[in-house]
Write a protein that binds this DNA or RNA. Structure first.
Lengths: 253, 253
DNA sequence: CAGTGGTCTAGACCACTAC
DNA sequence: TAGTGGTCTAGACCACTGA
């Protein structure tokens, strides 16, 4: 049988399209430049808009594109390196970090957090909301959970409201003398409230960094920070003790 | 005008659907159980299959579902905790790790890797491919780049092929006495070759862990490891020095 | 207001798995 | 071969942005 078709791997259209677009981005576009709109691009490549969108979604996931409803699709800058490692001065409440305390309240943490804290599943803890801003852009939203037992002196600040109260919790926690930490990273998707803080749509991919802070041999606090996965590259260790993030790297294919 | 519609936030269908399904997964399904097929689920919820799929994709991204073509959609187990932190015995070539050396060759690394290594962009380096298997499942595919200058003794093993050669490179690297490391994590999508190693489709979301290994004050090697984002939770530090992964956590919404 | 990306539909066919 | 998820189409309408 004259099977001239030896193409055993009919590559999906959107995959090929993604490759073509990625090359075009490297060679023909500059950071910040606006691409033609989706209907136009789809027509130009002879595919349905849904197919074109599948390719764009991949490129956005890889941090190469940024799409904003009502505006358009732009070429994204290289990902920012954001330090989440064990640098001493990154501990909650330390001066000079990029975090801004938003507010604070007493609430019952999710069961997974309660397990890490070692508290009962219905026990309320101090909950601090913070936002991290780097280079003028929001990169992370954090919920910091501090059991009452970790900060016994906190009654004095308990009357203050909002940001002031949040700073009070952080100050007490810092005064505790944190000894070490312990982190995990996993992929998640932004809840509605996180999405708003991060200036993204709900469901946007985020890197969830869960940190346990230890003091006096116990778990003193747990932080759950969600970082924008499209714009951030998390950096750990900085073991040489010298380098901070550089913001100049470019991911290779 | 009788505007009884004060619903200012018409939540997208797929978003609501995802929430409903997530609750059903918690209460009515057990790990490993097979869900009804997509056409059936779509009919049951009164939506188009594309919309249903959008919800399933989100749940798969969050590690709650696993979908396999030709088979079906199953309820995924909680993510595995995999250690990628600075435990000494995780260094390349150490005994007892989960890595299996696949093969090795001389090749020109991507520009981004060459920059980290401090080599010329057209300079060849030893390149070792490894796979990491945990609990019987493939979790990561790694490319380890070792400049010739880091392992001058390597000529002796240069004749061996495949896995033997790979192990030779690792042995020499280990003998070098690595001092510290430096890591970054970012979101990526699996290339075709990585996807095959990870038993996923191309484009599947992965966590890319880039590690720089230092010896004698220089960058001795660079590793680029891609972890399955759906099944893995990366753990760093283990600062207490006691805990290994537990595999029993469950992510809260 | 016009133009953008985001959501949704109702189909079709393909690639793969397992029986 | 039957049944699954994966890809693709050609439309439609909606939510948002900025002039």
């Amino acid at each position: 049988m004259g099977t001239t078709q030896l193409e055993t791997v009919p590559e999906p259209k959107y995959w090929h399209l993604k490759t073509v677009l990625a090359e075009a981005l490297d060679s023909e576009f500059t950071v910040g430049e606006i691409l033609p709109n989706e209907r136009e691009l789809a027509a130009r490549f002879g595919v349905a808009r849904a197919t074109l969108r599948q390719a764009l979604e991949q490129l956005e996931l890889e941090g190469r594109l940024q799409r904003r409803r009502g505006v358009g699709t732009t070429v994204a800058p290289p990902r920012m390196g954001v330090s989440v490692g064990s640098a001493q001065d990154r501990w909650p409440g330390a001066a000079g970090d990029d975090w801004e305390a938003a507010d604070s309240a007493l609430s019952v943490p999710p069961a997974s957090v309660a397990r890490l804290l070692g508290t009962e599943t219905d026990e309320t803890v101090h909950t601090v909301r913070r936002s991290r801003v780097t280079g003028g852009h929001p990169v992370a939203a954090e919920l910091l959970y501090v059991p009452g037992g970790s900060v016994p002196e906190l009654a004095a600040v308990d009357v203050a409201a909002g940001p002031a109260r949040a700073r009070g919790v952080l100050r007490e926690l810092h005064a505790l003398g944190l000894e070490s930490e312990d982190q995990t990273v996993e992929l998640g998707s932004a809840r509605a409230d996180e999405a708003k803080q991060l200036d993204r749509l709900p469901g946007a991919p985020v890197l969830v960094v869960t940190t346990r802070y230890f003091a006096h041999g116990r778990t003193a606090a747990v932080s759950v920070a969600t970082y924008r996965a499209d714009t951030c590259r998390l950096t750990f260790g900085d073991s040489g003790g010298v380098r901070i993030h550089e913001d100049q790297e470019r991911q290779a294919s």
